[in-house]
Design a protein around this nucleic acid. Structure first.
Lengths: 119, 119
DNA sequence: CAGGCCAACTAGGTCAACTATGTTGGTCGC
DNA sequence: GCGACCAACATAGTTGACCTAGTTGGCCTG
């Protein structure tokens, strides 16, 4: 990261990675270099790399798996945070099923708890 | 931040602030407490507060002004592209984090229960 | 009184170190 | 061969420090 623009390093790295994903140079499902390797590659500290990855992880573009690595998200969506309406719809569908799942599991747990505490 | 959920502190703080904005307890244009005050208020380090603010800043919900403070985005301050869609996006983001949080807590409870019934 | 300087705040960025946790591969003893 | 163990590596989270830069208000000098 030698670019001397006023733009902070962690944003430059995030931009670069985002572009690599969009450009196909990092295919969906493919692993990124390790944090340490990226740090060396961009000539930045571990912290700024972790920040950059954190942003893209927050945007849903990357998925980090502890102990294994960071991977480009496959499946739908991608496209940066504030995406199209289609992304939003998909997100809502996901959330709806997630809520239904949670409700069922909660009911299960609750009944188990009340049974046990009753006696 | 004393909540003992598995959710990391910087996300809990981000969620809380996001909710305060949506709930109107932090009006558009209003300033947030200083970083140091927030850190004390949440009983967290400066770093995690800065991280939380950074996320919301990245989401466009907050606007930081160096030397002055951090303010809740004021409707049409800066373009921010989609206008009304931003509200929906924020709502979805909030729901997503809420679901993730609940999911983790449920998983915690479930594993505790199954452990206990094992013996 | 006016102007300028300075100290005390603010946010933002970067770095280094530590902990926790998960994955993987190799070695050692049986 | 197989299981237990262990070392090396990975992400993730947290903390504390240091530096930059903008803003504000008060104090002091001319």
């Amino acid at each position: 990261m030698v670019k001397k623009s006023g733009r902070p390093a962690y944003l430059q790295i995030a931009d670069d990675l985002r572009e690599q994903v969009r450009g196909g140079s990092l295919a969906p499902g493919a692993p990124l270099p390790s944090t340490a390797q990226l740090a060396e590659q961009y000539d930045a500290s571990l912290s700024v790399v972790k920040m950059a990855v954190g942003i893209l992880r927050n945007e849903g573009l990357l998925i980090g798996q502890q102990g294994k690595g960071v991977f480009v998200r496959d499946e739908e969506s991608s496209e940066s945070g504030q995406g199209t309406a289609v992304d939003l719809v998909n997100e809502v569908i996901e959330l709806r099923t997630a809520v239904r799942d949670l409700s069922e599991r909660l009911a299960q747990v609750e009944s188990t708890l009340s049974e046990r505490s009753d006696r």
